[in-house]
Design a protein around this nucleic acid. Structure first.
Lengths: 348, 348
DNA sequence: GAAAGTGGTTTGAACGATCCAATGAAAGAG
DNA sequence: CTCTTTCATTGGATCGTTCAAACCACTTTC
């Protein structure tokens, strides 16, 4: 059987649609249909074309498809500047979940460095201008973050990991219910028999921090436990947290719920400095279940975020919005889970 | 001045090269040249075209360019399956450095989920087949990793973060000199006056682990310090490490150099269990300078990897190879740096 | 018996850029 | 004054795919 002539199957080992077409004895459009709208083909033709595709190891050229369909099937994720410090929300697991879910839907994640400054929008604009992405996933959203409004005005699909705490919200988001987390921590401690449960949080004004404080507050009230003088604030570093914890311990707290693992380890230090030990004299809980939580002694009871679920939901919402841009905003609030280790115990 | 007619500047707000061309009174080819080979243009033409590009906010369409040039200007990075456990090499900072450097060169990072199993190559094949990426950055390389060979045989540019410890090496890599790190730790401890310095490492056979052990060994020999019975092994978790540290402490070690922060915190625990404290009775050093190192009390002296540099070097090597595929393999070994905290002290 | 469907496939024209070869104008050589 | 060389610019083809419309061989409808 002589090799079919027109599209040379030689060179570069790259198989094109035309080659598949001649080999299967159909037109290129039919090959295209076999992949994109199989229901249009007669079953036997479909089968034949698909088999040929398989035999030849054909894969559609992403750029060509992208050019024609005017979509890139790429989702942009701006990784914040490392300089900005900030608690990396255990990026690792989140990103993995994001790419895994996206992959399943035929999308991929495009990673770009996004400066923290006010000109952060420039990169987003560039990416859109060159039609490099169809949509964005945002994280590390903060009060006064201009990205949501900016994207919304241009009709670009996006999802944020993290609520928009300020004023009028725009767009879809997925977040973890911080209040439910600290609430669960109080529940756990109360069940163990604690009655003097303090809270060590971040300075008011950060959405997530206030949310976590709220959960402690409502659980304490529900149990009829005292909250006056049992609350302190600190920036997110160990020395400050240790200092902030002192008055709480002086006031006789037998347990401290905190807004982060860093703050919790500040309590560890404060306890160590007064010759006491977490998990023996005083119970301590953290937030985030960061790697450090399982490494320290005693192991830190902490609140784990379901980052895999967050990633999955982000993609789900995003794809929904790509299909129906005008849809009413959708929000997903996921429950964190308490990971009990040795830093919490039954007193007396 | 009547609006030029041919390419309608209306619709979708998207500016194309043809629009820029008519507006600047040149052909599309000249616009292309202005961006890609400016030296071909007469200075005044160049200036005029560039100004027009700027005024109209034109950006080349990535897919169109990609289709024609047969390059995607995308670099693939497979994020390993989270299930595979393994210490994430502080992915965060590395990825940021990677994307920041790539951005500067006009490249972007394409993130994809890469399963740990033996069929991991499937994703790489898919990405190449659809011409989705020009090159790959590999990390989490391990003995018997088939990716390097596989890519090399196909002539696909790649760089690995991490040496290929097994047999014949293929391709470029960037790595951190683990031996230099543990060597520096011993240096530091010896300078403080320690003479009985033990090493707690991973089971032999892992390239990186053996490398770190080697650094300890050579520094000890250089100082004429005894090594017999001063070396132990443990898997990378706190309980095992704590158990493995016991004989070292029993043998009277006043300092322990470890192959990871996790192992170091195992020593913390072992010390705590015998009523001693790191940084007071015994010095301890970790490896990686993970976030936990600065959170624990006392702060853990650890060896920090220059991940920003690693990322930068990866991209540098990669771009070099994209230009000259046949080039002889290049390797970069970067020095880690000792971060001194409170877990090391001068004895007696 | 001509018009109107029908399902399956093909044809021709984009999509927006770059490659290659060709062109015109200006400059230098004989 | 013609002929070549050099420089700057242009025209047309092309990358691999999908869209829109046309086509084809039949069947159904009135």
């Amino acid at each position: 059987m002589p090799a079919s002539s027109h599209p040379s199957p030689s060179r570069s080992g790259q198989v094109t649609m035309a080659m598949v077409a001649t080999r299967a004895g159909v037109s290129t459009q039919t090959v295209s249909n076999a992949l994109n709208t199989p229901e249009l083909l007669r079953p036997e033709t479909l089968e034949r074309v698909l088999r040929t595709i398989d035999e030849m190891g054909y894969r559609p050229h992403r750029a060509a498809r992208s050019l024609r369909t005017r979509t890139s099937r790429l989702i942009g994720y701006g990784i914040r500047s490392a300089a900005s410090g900030g608690s990396s929300p255990i990026l690792d697991r989140f990103l993995h979940a994001l790419s895994a879910t996206a992959d399943e839907a035929g999308y991929r994640i495009l990673l770009f460095a996004s400066p923290a400054g006010p000109d952060s929008l420039a990169v987003y604009e560039e990416l859109l201008g060159e039609r490099g992405v169809d949509a964005f996933v945002l994280s590390d959203t903060h009060r006064g973050d201009r990205r949501q409004r900016w994207l919304d005005q241009r009709g670009i699909p996006f999802v944020a990991f993290g609520r928009v705490w300020s004023g009028r919200e725009t767009g879809d988001w997925v977040d973890v219910d911080g209040a439910a987390g600290t609430d669960a921590a109080v529940e756990h401690l109360a069940a163990l028999g604690h009655r003097s449960i303090a809270f060590l949080g971040w300075p008011r004004g950060s959405g997530a921090g206030d949310d976590r404080a709220q959960g402690w507050l409502r659980a304490m009230r529900r149990h009829g436990l005292p909250v006056r003088g049992r609350r302190a604030e600190s920036t997110d570093d160990v020395p400050s947290a240790a200092a902030a914890a002192v008055p709480l311990l002086d006031a006789g707290a037998t347990a401290v719920v905190t807004a982060s693992d860093t703050l919790a380890l500040g309590c560890y230090r404060a306890l160590g400095e007064r010759g006491a030990a977490p998990g023996r004299e005083v119970s301590v809980t953290g937030f985030d279940d960061s790697p450090a939580a399982s490494l320290v002694s005693p192991g830190l009871t902490s609140i784990g975020q379901p980052l895999e679920d967050v990633g999955r939901e982000c993609i789900r919402l995003l794809l929904g919005r790509v299909e129906d841009t005008g849809r009413t905003p959708e929000r997903v609030l996921l429950a964190p889970s308490l990971v009990v280790r040795d830093s919490t115990f039954a007193p007396l």
